[in-house]
Design a protein around this nucleic acid. Sequence first.
RNA 1: GUGGGUGUAGCUCAAUUGGUUAGAGCACCUGGUUGUGGUCCAGGAGGCUGUGGGUUCAAGUCCCAUCACUCACCCCA
Length: 418
Amino acid sequence: MNQIRTLKGTHDILPSDSQKWQRLEQIVHKVSQRFGYEEIRTPIFEETRLFSRSVGEDTDIVSKEMYSWEDKNGTSITLRPELTASVVRSYIQHNLGGQAPVQRLYYMGPLFRRERPQKGRQRQFHQFGVEAFGSENPEQDAEIIAIAWHILSECGLSENATLRLNSIGSPLCRTAYREALKDFIRPNLAQFSETSQTRFETNPLRILDTKAEHEQKLLEGAPIVSDCFTEEDKVHFESVQRFLNAMNIPFLIDEKLVRGLDYYSRTVFEFTSTKLGAQDALLGGGRYDKLVETLGGKPTPGIGFASGMERFLIAMGDQTIESKMDIYFVCLDEAGLSTALSLSNELRHAGFSVISDPLRRSLKAQMREANKSRARYAIILGETEMETDSVVLKNLEKGEQETVSQKNIKEKLKNLTI
RNA sequence: GUGGGUGUAGCUCAAUUGGUUAGAGCACCUGGUUGUGGUCCAGGAGGCUGUGGGUUCAAGUCCCAUCACUCACCCCA
C-alpha cells in the first residue's frame, strides 16, 4: 500500500509558507480596500454552462482543462477555473447593479484547471483579482491598473514587472478586424500549423500569439487592430494611456497582446515578471463590456484583472518572517498543571500569546523549546513556586529572571510592555 | 496530450572502475550531577537507495519497465 499524497499539481501550504501567503493576502485586502473595493466570495463550484458561456467553448480552459462532473440531479457542475465569470454571475443574481451604479469588488481563492504542472502553474492554484462594474470610461481602466500596480509595489515587485497594454477594440471593431485578419491570412493558410488553422475558424486573433517563427514571418504586415478602431475606441485607448502617464505607471504597448478568454473587449493588459520561468504572467486582465449581457444581465460595462498568487510568491522570493511568542509557559510538576493552564489562559485573555508545554519533559527540554519558540519570556512553575503561589519570570533575551507572585504576573507583564 | 532532466535519512547532498555493515551536515531526541534556553561537547534515533523486473559471484551504481517530482512545449494567472 503506497502512501497517500497530494494529487499531481496540488500542494500543501505548510506553516513555513503560510506566513508569506498571509502577508500577500493582507496586502491585497489593504490595497483593494484603499481603492474602495469590497470583498466578494463565491462558491468553489458552479454550473458548467457558466464557464462555457463566458470563457468560451473553444478556449483551452473550457475545452480540455475543467474538472467537471454530473451531479446526482443531472446538472453538469465544474470546479471554477477562473473567477470573473462567478463574480459576474453573482452581480447579476443579486442585482448588485441596482444597488449602486458602480460596483467595486475584489476576491481571492482557489481555482482548478487540469493542466500539466510546471513552474508557476498548478492544478489547484490561487488568484486574487478585482472587478469594477458600471463604468465604461477610461479612468476606470486606469484605476484597475493602478490597483494592480499598487499591489505589485507593496510586494516589492514593481521593479521587475512590466506592464503590457493593448486595446482589442470594441466588439464591433473586433468583428471587422477579425475579417480583415482572416482576409490577410487566407492566401497562406495552408502554411500555418494545424492549431492555427483551427483557430482561423474559432478564434483568429489568437493566431497573432503564435510563437512559431515561420508563422510570425507569415504574419508580417498583417493588419493591426488599431486599423479598425472606431473613433471612440481610439479616444478610449489614448485616454487610458494618458491617465497611466499621469499616475506615473510605466507601460509598454504590445500589439500582439490578445488574451485568451473570449469575453474581453477594448483594454487588455498583463504584468509580466522577469523573476518567473516560462509562465511569466503575474497578472492579466481587461475590459469585458459585453459579458454581463452575455450571461443574461442588463448591459453593464466591466473591467478587472486576475493574478496568480503562487506566481506572486515565486517572484517575491524568500522573505521569511519569524513568528514570535510572548510567553512560553514551563511547568515542572504534574501537580502544577491546573495552575499553569489557568494562568496561561488568563494571560491570553489579556492579549499575550502563550504556549504551554504539553510534553512534561525536563526543565532543560522545556527551556530549549521556549528558546525555539522565540518567546520573549519564559514563565516557570515548579514545586518551589507552587508552595509560595509564585512563578519565575525569565527574560529570554537578557537571561535575567525574577520571582513574581501569581497574582501579580499579569500586571507585571503588562508593565513590561512586551 | 508531447518532450527533456532528476529520484539515496525530515531537508541539502556524499558513496572509487559494480565489491563487506550506504555516510556527512542541518534538523530531531537524551545527557554533560539537585530546577534553567541559545554556544560548545558526547551519545542516540532515523534508509527495503521511488517501485517492479533483469544482467552479475556481487547492484545505490549497469539494462528495461513503471511511478513520482521537476522543467519546457501548448495554454494561461
